[in-house]
């Protein structure tokens, strides 16, 4: 039992994942379901909901010290918004926080997204195991001590 407590905690702290949507997209069904499923797998979700601006979301990433960011899109503007967000994150010094995308993402946009710096893309039909697997790997990489 002892390894469930403090020392082990330190080695693998609880993952804090920030989930939100950008712009005026109101289709929040997917992100709400994902939030619940990740919660049920032991992840702490900082839920920002819909209608965020890139500026506001970046500040939230900083203030919440999020381990990674998940965005959901069901509208066609994801290339623009994702680029804007990642640019803002870099300007604000949190460009190293992994970003994953879900929703109606077209395979043919994958390359462009990855080039921008998106590290996980989960289009229609993605499995929760794959998302979890990605999260654990991405956070493992990003897990460095405070500065």
């Amino acid at each position: 039992m002892s390894d469930l407590s403090s020392p082990a905690d330190r080695a693998s702290p609880t993952i804090r994942c920030l989930l939100g949507m950008l712009g005026t997209d109101v289709h929040n069904k997917g992100i709400r379901t994902l939030a619940q499923m990740l919660r049920d797998h032991g992840i702490e979700i900082i839920y920002l909901g819909e209608h965020n601006t890139c500026e506001g979301m970046t500040q939230a990433i900083i203030a919440e010290d999020a381990d990674l960011v998940g965005l959901s899109y069901s509208s066609s503007n994801y290339l623009d918004y994702t680029r804007q967000l990642i640019d803002t994150m870099r300007e604000q010094g949190v460009g190293d926080v992994p970003v994953m995308l879900g929703g109606l993402i077209h395979p043919e946009d994958s390359d462009a997204l990855r080039q921008m710096g998106v590290s996980g893309i989960f289009g229609p039909g993605s499995k929760i195991e794959d998302i979890l697997d990605f999260i654990h790997r991405a956070v493992g990489r990003a897990d460095e001590p405070a500065r």
Binding site: A35, R39, D40, H41, G42, E44, I45, Y47, L48
Partner: peptide
């Protein structure tokens, strides 16, 4: 059960996100 959580308070304060 899982140790996970949905931290939803922030949504209500979103208007101050960029301040």
């Amino acid at each position: 059960f899982s140790g996970g959580a949905i931290l939803g308070d922030r949504v209500r304060m979103n208007q101050h996100a960029a301040d």
